[in-house]
């Protein structure tokens, strides 16, 4: 660990970043706070409403439903993508021409604009023109993501797995590549089984990157908006209306600024709490792994 020197002038180096982020973050956030405590009757006439919107949102079943759906979605996503990502990373080649091929093709979905990802899966899943939808229909499976909530959920989940598992794979792969060959040789001499190698050599080395993977995936799936919006528009009914979709519906669709702002703040506080946990856990793990050497 680098011994850091105390130097208050370092603030000048951070200043540009501070100013730009403050401009794009603090001013809009204040606008949101401003809306959240006021009521409007149109014509730009605003009146003080106190914490009324917050109480309303916290007690509204609509918010509860969206929140639960969001938690369920993020939970399922993590349960699938993390183990799958580890498996694929373990099976990836370490050298030869396979490495760049794997890395490039696997990173490809990450660089497709999110609404195009939505469009790809919207087309892919359609019963009339999509490969997936058509094949399932041929097999006699009743699959229609426009009308059936279960099919809509499955489509959105498979799409997210398609879109983001590579992130987990690449992170784990980076962790695995940092293990020196000597470790494996030592394990071989000791006659360690494949499972023991995974448990005692690979998993500890991947711990840090796995943490990043889990938390990044959790946050990003918690904020998901564009892809399900393009595929299902939050439907059928409200079955795939996640928090962000609900928020945009309320703020821009219905122009209910007060409740939308209150919901934004609650949403943001949840995320802030999570990122604080993330940050603390991350730095603790960092200290531990450094202390261990």
């Amino acid at each position: 660990m680098i011994q850091k020197q105390v130097n208050q002038k370092a603030w000048f180096m951070v200043l540009p970043v501070f100013l730009i982020v403050a401009f794009s973050a603090v001013i809009p956030l204040m606008t949101v706070v401003n809306y959240s405590v006021q009521d409007t009757f149109g014509n730009n006439v605003f009146s003080w409403y106190g914490l009324g919107w917050f109480e309303e949102i916290i007690h509204s079943p609509r918010f509860h439903d969206a929140f639960l759906r969001q938690l369920l979605f993020s939970g399922i996503i993590l349960a699938i993508e993390i183990p799958l990502g580890i498996c694929i990373a373990l099976a990836m080649p370490k050298k030869g021409w396979g490495v760049p091929v794997c890395l490039v093709t696997m990173a490809l979905p990450l660089l497709i604009p999110w609404n195009v990802v939505g469009t790809i899966w919207q087309i892919f899943g359609r019963v009339d023109i999509g490969l997936l939808g058509h094949t399932l229909a041929q097999m006699g499976i009743n699959y229609n993501y426009v009308q059936d909530p279960l099919a809509a959920w499955l489509t959105v989940i498979v799409m997210d797995v398609w879109h983001w598992t590579s992130l987990v794979v690449l992170l784990c792969y980076a962790g695995l590549c940092s293990i020196p060959d000597a470790y494996y040789q030592a394990a071989k001499i000791d006659g360690a089984t494949r499972l023991a190698v995974f448990r005692y050599i690979q998993l500890p080395k991947m711990q840090r990157v796995l943490l990043i993977a889990v938390l990044l995936r959790f946050m990003d799936s918690f904020m998901i908006y564009t892809e399900p919006f393009v595929i299902t528009g939050g439907g059928p009914g409200n079955s795939t209306t996640f928090l962000s979709i609900d928020l945009v519906k309320m703020a821009i669709g219905q122009f209910d600024l007060g409740p939308a702002a209150a919901m934004s703040l609650i949403y943001f506080l949840v995320i802030l709490l999570l990122s604080w946990v993330f940050y603390t856990v991350m730095s603790n793990v960092g200290e531990e792994s450094k202390g261990g050497h």
């Binding site: 982020v21 794009s24 973050a25 001013i27 809009p28 956030l29 606008t31 949101v32 946050m219 918690f222 904020m223 908006y225 928090l243 962000s244 979709i245 928020l247 945009v248 703020a251 821009i252 600024l257 939308a260 934004s264 949403y267 943001f268 995320i271 802030l272 999570l274 990122s275 993330f278």
Partner: peptide
């Protein structure tokens, strides 16, 4: 701010 949902910031 990396964790802030863009949906929160769209209108402001």
């Amino acid at each position: 701010n990396r964790m802030a949902p863009p949906a929160v910031f769209a209108l402001p």
